[in-house]
Design a protein around this nucleic acid. Structure first.
Lengths: 157, 157
DNA sequence: GTGGCTGCAAACATTTTGCATAACT
DNA sequence: AGTTATGCAAAATGTTTGCAGCCAC
């Protein structure tokens, strides 16, 4: 369980202080189990705790990451960095380049990958970051006429 | 094979011009089969083609990416973006957080993942980005005290 | 010849940092 | 009280863009 108390424990054990910005960032990550950009986190934080500086959000995230409480991840070819709680249970991302939907799967795939690496390559995996870009079941079933080729090239900012 | 000619073909077919900067960037990526940061690419380019602007490197990479000739990838928790030729054969990265070594594996793991997603989730994978951070066989065998062969960790920017 | 590229420099976006002050323990 | 962490603002990074001239076709 990712309770608020958990944060307190993690921080205090290491001698870090439990501050308002840190709590707010933590809460933002907890409330939205989705992946959040720093900007989004800052917005959520600001709603409950006006006055928290962006720099503090960054600093909080950096600290959490250092304590392995959160995880930084890039989805597919997105150009933004996103953050999420570091669930002990690994999962992976399925990004549909057709509808943009992002699914998180907590299946055993990651566990199997880890096992494969261990027995096959002697690699002791600590963290697996698996992102797959393709077409989700819904869009695939929908045939070909979807969000066509050009649009793919559109994003090119 | 990823010959220089290949670049010409890819570009010309689509009506893009084969220019000095583009050739230089392509060559840089070919010479070092390793993952390169934009900075590293720019350095390699500058060595053979002084006068090529950084902006052109970015523009070349963006174009190549759009043509699926190269691939942008973030290794583990690195904070820099790296580029590599988009080998048609998928592969994945094993990053050792002990010695910093990055292995590229072209095994069937990725293919199996794709198959799993297709049959299990109906997801039609187009691109798989798998990065695993952990401890490599060498470091794991070495017990705890490692500070490994620096020569292996060379690339780390 | 001409339109697509490039170099240059300025603009942007994002993340980091120095320092005086506020706040957690 | 003693520090650590914050807010603020400035700086450092990394990437993009407007534009006049150049060059591949």
């Amino acid at each position: 369980m990712s309770s608020s108390d958990e944060l307190n424990d993690h921080l205090r054990v290491k001698g870090y202080r439990v501050t308002r910005p840190r709590r707010a960032v933590w809460r933002a990550l907890m409330d939205a189990d989705d992946h959040l950009t720093v900007e989004e986190i800052a917005a959520l934080v600001a709603r409950r705790q006006p006055g928290v500086n962006l720099a503090s959000v960054y600093r909080s995230l950096a600290l959490f990451a250092q304590l392995d409480l959160v995880r930084e991840s890039r989805l597919g070819d997105e150009d933004v960095t996103r953050w999420e709680l570091a669930h002990p249970d690994e999962h992976f991302h399925l990004i549909c380049d057709s509808c943009g939907r992002v699914d998180h799967h907590a299946g055993d795939l990651v566990a199997r990958i880890i096992e494969h690496l261990r027995s096959g390559h002697g690699f002791d995996a600590r963290s697996v970051d698996l992102s797959v870009v393709g077409r989700c079941a819904f869009c695939a079933a929908d045939g070909e006429q979807r969000q066509p080729p050009d649009d793919i090239a559109n994003d090119s900012r």
